[in-house]
Amino acid sequence: MTIAYDQSIAGDAETGRASTIERHIAQEKARARRKRMTNRLLAAGFGMFVLFLWWLFSALGLIHRLIIPPPGEVLSAFFRVASASYFWPNVMVTLSEIAAGFALGLASGVVFGVSVAMFESVRATIYPYLVALQAPPKIVLAPIFVTWFGFDEASKIAMAVVMSFFPMFLNTLTGLASVEPNAVKLMRSLTASRWQTFRYLLLPNALPTMMAGVKLCWTLAVLGVVVGEFVGASAGIGYLIHAFNFQLDISGVFVLILLLSIFTLVVYQLIENLEKKIIFWSGM
C-alpha cells in the first residue's frame, strides 16, 4: 500500500493504484503456486524415500524377496506378466465384471433410493428389510453366490452388486430427504406436482450426496469382483493373483495389485471430474 501512494505522488494516481493491485494479485497467485509446488515436492519426495528404503532393505537382504520382492524385480515382472498371452483375456474378464457390477449396483441403488424416498407405501413395505439386509458383512455371501451363479462372471457381478448397492441406495435416499423445508414450501405454493418437485428440487438437491455415493459404489464394486474371484473363479485378475500366490510369484502378485489400484484410482478421478461438472454450483 505504501508503494501505491509513493507511485501516485510520482505520476498518475489511478494508474499507479491499478498497477499496485495487479502486482498484488500476481504476488498472491505466485505465493499460492509456490505453496502447491512445495506440497507436491513433499509428497513426491516422500514417495521416492519409501521407494529408496524398499530398494535398500532388499539390497541389504533385510527383507526376504519372497515377502517383499525388490523394486527392480517387480518392474521386470510387469513386462513378463503384461506380455504373457493369458494377461489381457484375464484383465478383460475382470474389467467387464467390474463394469457390469458397478452399473447394476448404481442403477439399482438409485431406483430403490428414489422409490423408497418418493413412495410412502414402498418405504413402509421394503425399507425395514433393506436396512436389515445391510447388517451382515456382504463378503459372507461370496461362497453362496458361487454355488448359485457358478464359477463364471455372474457370481462376481452379483458380489459387486450387493457390495455397491447399499451406499448408492442410502446416499440417494439421504440426498432426497435432506431438503430445506422452505424450498418444499415454495414448491407447494407454486402448485408444483410431485414429479415437478422431484425434477426441479429434490433430484438436483440430492446430486452432491448421490455423487459421493457413486464414488463409494465404484470402489466397492471393484472390491466385490476381486473377492468373488478369490472365492471361486476360472479367470480374472483376482484369479491370477490367487494363482501367482500359490506359485510363490510374489512380484507377479505385486504387479497385479498395482495395476488394479491404478485402474481404480484413474476411474475414481474420472468420477470426481464428472462430479465437479455435474454439481458445478458447490465450487462457487
Binding site: 430445506e180 422452505n182 424450498a183 414450501k185 415454495l186 407447494r188 405454493s189 407454486l190 402448485t191 426441479y200 428440487l201 438436483p204 438437491n205 446430486l207 454439481i279 458445478f280 454450483w281 458447490s282 462457487m284
Partner: peptide, 18 residues
C-alpha cells in the same frame, strides 16, 4: 389449497443454487 394466483415469499430467498 395453494393457488397460482397467490404468491408466497419467505424470509430466506430459497433460490436453487443449480
Amino acid at each position: 389449497r395453494p393457488r397460482p394466483d397467490i404468491g408466497f415469499m419467505l424470509q430466506t430467498a430459497v433460490l436453487f443454487p443449480w
